[in-house]
């Protein structure tokens, strides 16, 4: 765990948990200072006064694009399943979720 200048704790293991990503001790030792460097660099953005500025989510001036609410052909089940690591009877198999 280390401190960045925003006065916050950057807990890499916690973030990795949110990202559903297991990290080895070696990876933590490598990534933590690298990401800390990057976040310190990001503090440069604090120099700019952004009050009153609207955020841009994406560059196109289009909103609410819709298509006709009608059924149309889609991927066949066989095609959708062909890359599944484990499948049976037209379904993906996963470890047991409910006891």
């Amino acid at each position: 765990m280390s401190e960045n200048e925003k006065g916050t704790q950057f807990d890499l293991r916690y973030v990795a948990g949110l990202a559903r990503l297991e990290l080895s001790d070696d990876e933590v030792a490598t990534f933590e200072p690298q990401l800390q460097d990057i976040l310190t660099y990001m503090e440069k953005l604090d120099e700019v006064d952004v009050s009153g500025i609207e955020p841009t989510a994406h560059a196109n001036p289009v909103l609410n694009v819709t298509r006709a609410d009608a059924s149309r052909p889609s991927l066949e089940a066989e095609d959708a399943l062909r890359n599944g690591p484990k499948t049976t009877s037209d379904q993906f198999v996963v470890p047991k979720v409910v006891e």
């Binding site: 949110l18 990503l21 976040l39 953005l45 604090d46 952004v50 500025i53 955020p55 841009t56």
Partner: peptide
């Protein structure tokens, strides 16, 4: 990891929202 962090609770406004505003500029 970086993307998860900048979107995580408590940091969204400081990083992601600020970046979107700078994107406008």
């Amino acid at each position: 990891l970086l993307g998860t962090y900048v979107l995580s609770s408590g940091y969204y406004d400081a990083y992601y929202l600020r970046a979107q505003k700078l994107r406008t500029l």
